[in-house]
Each structure stands twice: as structure tokens, then as C-alpha cells.
Amino acid sequence: MSPSPAEPVAEECEPPPSGKLSRERMLACALEIIDREGIDKLSMRRLARALHHDPMSLYRYAANKAALLDGVAEIVLSQLTVDPSDTDWLAQLRSVARQYRRLALAHPHVVPLLVTRPLATPLALSPPGTLRPLEAILALLTGAGFSGPDALHIYRALFGLLHGHVLNELQEIVDNPEETDDLLRLGLHRLPIGEFPLLRGLATALASYDGAAELESGLDILLNGLTAKLTPTT
């Protein structure tokens, strides 16, 4: 069957050395396609073509596209390392935050799977791989002496910050890179000055956005506030 014009053939994925399909190889190929072209371009049929396998063979490893996307989220989050035995919980949370930002920038098309998809899935039905960072951070914080509810509060506050940050950073797009004037580079000159004087006046600050520095500033505010409000029990 020839491919539909609406669904062009994806670039091939590197075959496994054995030539046999595995869940790991299937998910790695799915991530490659998402990284290149986005979630909407991924389908079971297209993935099968990229792997040189029959589409039906994929259903052995993923019941449907939703399960496939859950698997992709799992393999990305598997790269997020948390050391529950670290005695410096603040430093460990900073490490986790920095890793998460790097993963988001490396796989920007996967960010919706990490940020919004979990909201549509009951916690108990989430893929185990997506829950391991939560479990590890809870272990880190309870090991540091926080109560379970306080540890959960800290986790939610941290990832609320991270999700907001990566979504903001990924939308920082320069409109006209060749322009030297910040107002023109960002396209803010199109905004009526009578309605958006403050936003237009921040053109230089917006143009000099530094995602890494912005994250560190946010972490300072969050972690200092949590430290002042919550006290470990031991």
C-alpha cells in the first residue's frame, strides 16, 4: 500500500543489532519521530514503516497510541535522576530542576506529554516510569525529616514551577532575528502603544531572556520560601 499524501513516510529509525523489534527500540523510534516533527505526526502505521515492521507487531508492546505516548514519556523521564540518599535536599532538588529543564529543551515536542497528559490520567493508572521521580523525591524529603504531606507539597510546588518555566522558555521566540532593535526583533512594534505601553517598554528585558538564570531565580524564591515555612521533624 502506498503512503497517503497526508502522511509522508518518516525517516527510517536505526534498526536494532538483532533485527528484532523490542519495546525499547519501538519507543526510541517513536521519540525520534516526535523530536523531528511533533506528536501529531506520530501514528502506529508510520512508526511501523520507520521500523520496517508490520503495524500489527507494534500492538504487542503498546495497545494504542495513548499507550505509546505514555511509553515515550517514561523513557524521557527515565533520564531524570534523583538521589534519595542525598543529605542536602535543597541541592538535590536544584539538580532535579536543572535536569528537567535540559530534558525539556532536548525534547520540546515531548513537553506536552510531561506537563498536560498526566492531568488526564488518574495517579494510580499512570505508567510506573512517570511516577518514579515522584516516589524518589518523596523518599528524599521524608528522609530529610519532612512529613509525607509536606514532602508532597514541596514536590507539587517544585514541578508547578518547572512546568510553568519550561512552557515559558519554549515560547520565547524571536520574530525577526535579523533586526537589531529589540522592539522589532520581538515584533512588539505591532502592539498598539496606547494599549501595551509596559509590555513594549520591556522589549530589552524580554530579548535578553536567559532560561537558565530565570530558573535559578525561580528556584531561589521557591526553595527559600519553602525552607522558611516548612520545618523537618527530625
Score class of each variant (00 low, 15 high):
28 A>Q: 15
28 A>F: 13
28 A>C: 12
29 C>P: 09
30 A>C: 04
31 L>C: 08
33 I>C: 00
34 I>F: 11
35 D>H: 11
37 E>F: 07
38 G>Y: 00
39 I>W: 07
42 L>F: 04
43 S>I: 00
45 R>Q: 00
46 R>F: 02
46 R>Q: 00
47 L>V: 04
47 L>E: 00
50 A>I: 09
51 L>P: 10
52 H>M: 10
53 H>I: 15
53 H>D: 15
55 P>C: 12
56 M>K: 11
56 M>V: 13
61 Y>Q: 10
61 Y>E: 06
61 Y>W: 07
63 A>Q: 13
65 K>T: 04
65 K>F: 00
68 L>T: 03
68 L>W: 02
69 L>H: 03
71 G>W: 01
72 V>R: 06
73 A>Q: 08
77 L>E: 08
78 S>E: 03
81 T>R: 12
83 D>S: 10
84 P>S: 06
85 S>T: 07
85 S>C: 05
86 D>E: 14
88 D>H: 07
91 A>M: 14
91 A>F: 13
91 A>L: 12
92 Q>H: 09
94 R>N: 04
95 S>D: 13
96 V>R: 00
96 V>F: 02
99 Q>Y: 09
99 Q>H: 02
99 Q>M: 06
102 R>N: 14
103 L>C: 14
104 A>N: 01
104 A>F: 03
105 L>K: 14
106 A>Q: 06
108 P>G: 05
108 P>K: 06
110 V>E: 00
111 V>T: 01
111 V>H: 04
113 L>I: 14
117 R>D: 02
117 R>H: 07
117 R>N: 10
117 R>W: 03
119 L>T: 09
120 A>W: 04
123 L>D: 12
124 A>F: 10
124 A>I: 15
124 A>M: 12
124 A>P: 09
125 L>I: 03
126 S>T: 11
126 S>W: 06
129 G>Q: 04
130 T>L: 11
130 T>H: 01
130 T>F: 11
136 A>R: 15
138 L>I: 15
138 L>V: 15
144 A>L: 04
145 G>V: 04
147 S>W: 07
149 P>G: 13
150 D>A: 13
151 A>G: 09
151 A>M: 05
152 L>K: 12
153 H>C: 06
154 I>P: 06
155 Y>V: 14
158 L>F: 04
158 L>N: 06
160 G>M: 09
161 L>C: 02
161 L>Y: 01
161 L>Q: 10
162 L>F: 08
162 L>Q: 01
163 H>G: 14
164 G>R: 05
167 L>P: 13
168 N>V: 12
169 E>L: 14
169 E>S: 13
171 Q>V: 11
173 I>T: 15
173 I>N: 04
